[in-house]
Design a binder for these strands. Structure first.
Lengths: 329, 329
DNA sequence: TTGTAAGCGTTATCAC
DNA sequence: GTGATAACGCTTACAA
């Protein structure tokens, strides 16, 4: 925005020989005499004029910009989400301001302050700060984490996903399942995956175990767990459900180290639907999150005019995709 | 930016019992009496005041926002770049406006218009539109593609990377190399990888071949090429250099289909340094692009005050990383 | 040092 | 339908 170099409405008005207000009307699709309209448009083109959306926002109280707050942009799930949200916003002629927090609670709050200053029209946030203060003045949509009834949360049907994983594994012949979980200790929607797993196992009378860890524990305990559950050459489980594809991928490596074949000896299902190179094959058989819908729904709710009665939680259906670590591939 | 609900400087001034200008000074670090300062800060905190950076930008001619234009955000390289650029900008107290173009030339031009409207302070663009019109009024830095001397371009040392790949493969015992290339036909810096490959091969007297394709050709020709170069059980080459990790990954699969072992029968090196799940292991042995430096350098140049004598091209050093498809892993 | 007032580019309200 | 004019929230001479 180098000053003095960009033409303004005033310049266009002078060039077109009309009044300032007339130019404004043309760019706001407010009826105006056809020849005036032409003159203005011609002058604008000639000068290379672009409306200044900040000045417009200053007056109109809208900026045409929404913010997306993410822990990072390189994780496949977050990257795909950023891509989809960006597109969903663009479709509605909105721009996307993106900030990454590195999962640092302070950085997250800082990000919110930053976007508050930028007077965005709304914020979509996927954060891990348990004490996050959400500005009441700006529409906010949370992804994957429920705050309170006043903050709409959009998430995948994590519980249903957990059930689906069990159903699939059971249908593929598994009789003894184990659920591996790793993640933050900030409670989030993703925690429901375990509930779905347990419920489905109980409903089907399937023997099951759970090993739920925190990020700070690292991945080694899973290896130790597997080793301690080896019965000679065989593992005590014939099916493993991991709460993320990343974990499943690590577990795959551990199983190989134990001399176990996947999917022959043990079948493995992850969660997320992460794809190699962002859009290729799955890393493993997985419960796929509907990222496009997640983005679209979040944007819809964020930009909803009537904010008096928004749903407080929306769960979107997940699906199952074979990815080579189950017998159906 | 719901109007009427957010406090303004005027509110703070009234609350603090000082003049409007005084409040402004406090928020711009312009010396002010200490007790005035305190009163203003207290009032601001009490009201939850945040400066409106749009209004500020309107006056100051700077908005504290830069735009990043990418083909998409899900490709691991672009995702990592987005993450790094976002961080580099944040470090300088800048916000990042991101747009994805889907590699559609029109969309790319459209994106530029959009960010022009938003009066960003600068644009970092990685685009494939050969006829892209770059606005003269806004600082622009191009990544991976040289436009003209007036548009600074930041890229990896692609030529050096091509040479490095040959050096490594040669050091690992390869004697007959082939270079596989796929990509757009818009000339970009990445094309220099081939030049580096050929130069290094010639310098070392290594027998070499090249198969350079366009995206629209698809991957099948590579498979056909490999098949036609099978000499009984053996491939006519003992080393393959691919212009991207993605291609290398596909080729890996083709080689397996041909009953060839990697790295025993043939060694494979890709380009980019893409990592599984964004930050884990490499997909293959690869020439790693210095994404962090790419981002940092781009931002440095973009925000450089003195724009009178900027470099027109900066190539950053790449490195080699073994990733299981060469004998040094 | 502090307060005042004139814009920055746009939109909205009026008389014309 | 058109064209002055007053905000919008902030910065910045300039006056006090």
């Amino acid at each position: 925005m180098k000053r003095g170099t960009m033409p303004t409405m005033k310049d266009v008005a002078r060039e077109a020989g009309v009044a300032l207000g007339t130019v404004s009307k043309v760019f706001n699709d407010i009826p105006v005499g056809e020849d005036y309209r032409r003159r203005v448009l011609d002058a604008a083109r000639k000068l290379g004029y672009q409306v200044n959306s900040y000045a417009r926002g200053l007056k109109a109280g809208k900026t045409g910009t929404a913010a997306l707050i993410l822990p990072n942009a390189y994780d496949p799930f977050f990257a795909a989400l950023a891509d989809s949200v960006c597109q969903a916003l663009a479709r509605r002629n909105y721009r996307m301001l993106m900030t990454v927090t590195g999962s640092d609670p302070d950085a997250e709050q800082q990000c919110i302050r930053m976007v508050e200053q930028n007077k965005v029209d709304g914020i979509i946030g996927l954060t891990y700060n348990p004490a996050l203060e959400i500005p009441a003045a700006i529409p906010f949509v949370s992804i994957d984490r429920y705050f309170n009834p006043a903050v709409p949360c959009v998430a995948s049907d994590n519980f249903g996903g957990g059930q689906l994983a069990v159903e699939k594994l059971a249908a593929l012949g598994c009789r003894r399942l184990v659920f591996f979980r790793i993640g933050t200790d900030v409670p989030g929607e993703a925690d429901k995956r375990m509930g779905g797993f347990q419920t489905a196992c109980q409903a089907r009378g399937i023997e099951h175990t759970v090993l739920a860890l925190n990020d700070r524990d690292g991945y080694e305990p899973f290896r130790a767990f597997l080793r301690s559950h080896m019965d000679g050459e065989r593992l005590a489980f014939d099916g493993i459900f991991c709460n993320t594809d990343r974990l499943a991928f690590y577990v795959l490596d551990m199983l190989a180290g134990l001399g176990l074949r996947v999917p022959e000896d043990v079948q493995l299902v992850g969660f997320d639907g992460a794809r190699r190179f962002g859009n290729d094959g799955f890393y493993c058989s997985t419960i796929v999150q509907p990222i496009g819908q997640l983005a679209e729904t979040s944007v819809n709710i964020l930009l909803e005019e009537d904010r008096s009665s928004l749903p407080s939680l929306i769960c979107l259906p997940v699906s199952y995709a074979p990815g080579g670590t189950t017998k159906d591939c």
